[in-house]
Simulated assay, not measured.
Amino acid sequence: MKKQAVVAVALSLAGVASAQEVVKIAHVGATTGPVAYFGKDTENGARMAVEALNARGPVIGGKKVRFELVAEDDAGDPKQATAVAHRLVDAKVNAVVGHQTSGTTIPASKIYHSAGIPQISHSSTSPKYTEQGFNTTFRVVSNDKQLGRALGRYAVKQMGVRRIAVVDDRTAYGQGLATEFARGLKEQGGGADVVAKEFTHDKATDFNAILTKIKASKPDLIFFGGMNAVAGPMLRQMKQLGINARMMGGDGICSDEIAKLSGGAMADGQVVCAEAGGVETAGKPALDKFKADYRKRFGIDVQINAPYAYDAVMTIADAMAKAGSTAPAKYLPELAKIRYKGVTGPVAFDAKGDIRDGTLTLYTFKGGRRTMLAVTR
Rank of each mutant, 00 (worst) to 15 (best):
K2H: 09
K3G: 15
V6Y: 10
A8R: 05
A8Y: 13
A8C: 02
V9T: 08
A10F: 03
L13C: 11
S18H: 12
A19M: 09
A19E: 14
A19D: 11
Q20I: 04
Q20N: 06
K24Q: 11
I25M: 09
V28G: 11
T31V: 07
T32F: 15
G33S: 08
Y37M: 07
F38K: 00
E43F: 07
A46M: 01
R47S: 15
E51M: 13
E51G: 06
A52L: 08
N54K: 05
R56N: 15
G57T: 06
P58M: 10
I60V: 15
G61F: 07
G62S: 08
F67P: 05
F67G: 10
G76N: 09
T82I: 08
H86W: 10
H86L: 12
A91Y: 03
V97H: 10
S123V: 05
S126C: 12
K128G: 14
R139A: 14
V156K: 09
V161M: 04
V161S: 03
V166S: 06
V166E: 06
V166G: 09
D168S: 09
D168A: 11
T171L: 11
Q175F: 15
Q175A: 13
T179L: 15
E180M: 00
F181V: 00
G184R: 08
L185S: 09
K186W: 04
Q188F: 10
A192D: 12
V194F: 14
T200S: 14
A204T: 07
T205R: 12
N208C: 06
D220C: 03
G225T: 03
N228T: 15
N228A: 13
A231D: 07
M234Q: 04
M234G: 04
M238H: 03
K239W: 12
K239G: 07
M247C: 01
C254V: 00
I258E: 04
D268L: 04
D268Y: 07
Q270Y: 10
V271H: 01
C273M: 08
E275F: 15
G277R: 00
V279C: 08
P285I: 06
K289R: 13
F290R: 11
F298G: 04
G299W: 11
I300T: 14
Q303L: 08
I304L: 15
D311G: 00
I316N: 03
A317L: 12
A319T: 01
A319M: 02
K322R: 15
K322E: 14
A323I: 09
S325Q: 13
A327P: 00
A327Y: 06
A327F: 05
P328E: 13
E334P: 13
L335M: 13
L335D: 11
L335C: 09
Y340Q: 06
K341S: 14
V343S: 11
T344K: 04
T359E: 11
F365R: 01
G367S: 02
G368Y: 13
M372S: 07
